[in-house]
Amino acid sequence: MNAPFQPDSISLDQLELGARAVVAAIDWQALDSAESSRLRHFGFDEGVTVETLHLGPFGRDPLAVRVGRMTVAIRRKHAGAVRVVPTVK
């Protein structure tokens, strides 16, 4: 199930620190089954607002992302599978 093409979408790992965005689409194919169900369990879903809160000290990896009321840590590589549209402040 893919969302309609969003020309202004970027991948979550490109999102600026402290910026908010709305999830446009998630490339489930890029993740293995445990990884994708974990992301679903964290509440990643189209239309959900996310915010990059912190970055790991080495190589800016992993990312701490707020999803709904939860803060989760995911690696840059997995964040790359999530397409988001930044919210205009």
């Binding site: 803060t71 989760v72 840590a73 995911i74 690696r75 997995h78």
Partner: peptide, 9 residues
């Protein structure tokens, strides 16, 4: 397998 790092803070 795994090697992933996905957890709740």
């Amino acid at each position: 397998g795994g090697g992933g790092f996905m957890m709740e803070l």
